[in-house]
């Protein structure tokens, strides 16, 4: 069953069609990858899904109901969590307080919210840093904190926006493990990623876009061998041979 359906999504900024008529769906329990060269509109699609930007035309359907035009915080309560590509830690709060604040999304009692937050920090491997200020974390920690915070809102669908960018190789492997663990915990994942090692190993299906338009969709192998994708990434010359 499709958990999330994006139908004919179009987003126009002035004269720029950032996203043009993109349609795809995310099945319950899978990891769906969204790839495309720089500036192809991946993050814009995320921002349209949780109505960070209003949609120009098209529709976004979550669990059978349209969420188009709903407030960002309402969409979070419905069960869509997200991380930001440019991390947005709540700098002058401790790591634990960052996650506790998001746990209040589902839990109203302070002690329970802290308990939940501690569990999530353990899960994300941040438990040792819980009393540090968020601004003192290195980039790897901040990316994890983004994920931990999104998880604390108990989402059914998690939108991960380049959570592996800027990580070193060992951190990368840990990130892949973490994302798999999240999926195994029953959370559906839609992931935007540039690092092919990550996206090709973890995705069940991949949707590729360029210039805001769909160019391919399928399993990682299908997409990797698709001429349009190769052309978009490597240029026309490589696509033909």
């Amino acid at each position: 069953m499709a958990l999330l359906e994006v139908k004919n999504l179009t987003k126009v900024f002035g004269g720029l069609r950032a996203v043009s008529d993109v349609t795809f769906h995310v099945n319950q329990g899978e990891i769906m990858g969204l790839i495309g060269p720089n500036g192809s509109g991946k993050t814009t699609i995320f921002n349209c899904i949780n109505n960070y930007y209003p949609i120009t035309s098209g529709d976004v359907i979550f669990k059978g109901n349209s969420i188009k035009g709903m407030k960002t915080h309402t969409i979070c309560h419905l069960g869509i969590g997200r991380t930001f590509q440019v991390v947005k830690p709540l700098s002058r709060m401790t790591v634990l307080d960052n996650v506790t604040a998001s746990a209040f999304c589902r839990i109203n009692i302070i002690r329970d919210a802290r308990e939940e937050a501690l569990g999530i920090l353990e899960f994300c491997g941040l438990i040792d840093q819980k009393d540090k200020l968020a601004k003192s974390l290195p980039i790897g920690g901040r990316k994890r904190l983004e994920i931990a915070r999104a998880l604390a809102t108990k989402p059914e669908l998690l939108l991960l926006d380049e959570t592996a960018a800027g990580l070193n190789p060992s951190e990368l492997d840990e990130a892949i493990e973490l994302i798999k663990k999240i999926r195994d915990g029953g959370i559906t994942v839609l992931i935007v990623e540039h690092i092919m090692k990550v996206i090709m190993t973890i995705s069940d299906r991949i949707h590729a876009i360029n210039f805001g338009q769909t160019i391919a969709e399928g399993t990682p192998e299908e997409v990797a061998n698709n001429p349009a994708v190769i052309e978009a990434y490597l240029g026309e010359a490589y696509a033909q041979c």
Partner: peptide, 16 residues
């Protein structure tokens, strides 16, 4: 405090 630190992040964490 979340709102003070980052209003956009707060909004995406389900805070009205």
């Amino acid at each position: 405090v979340s709102i003070r630190e980052d209003q956009d992040a707060a909004e995406s964490l389900g805070i009205n």
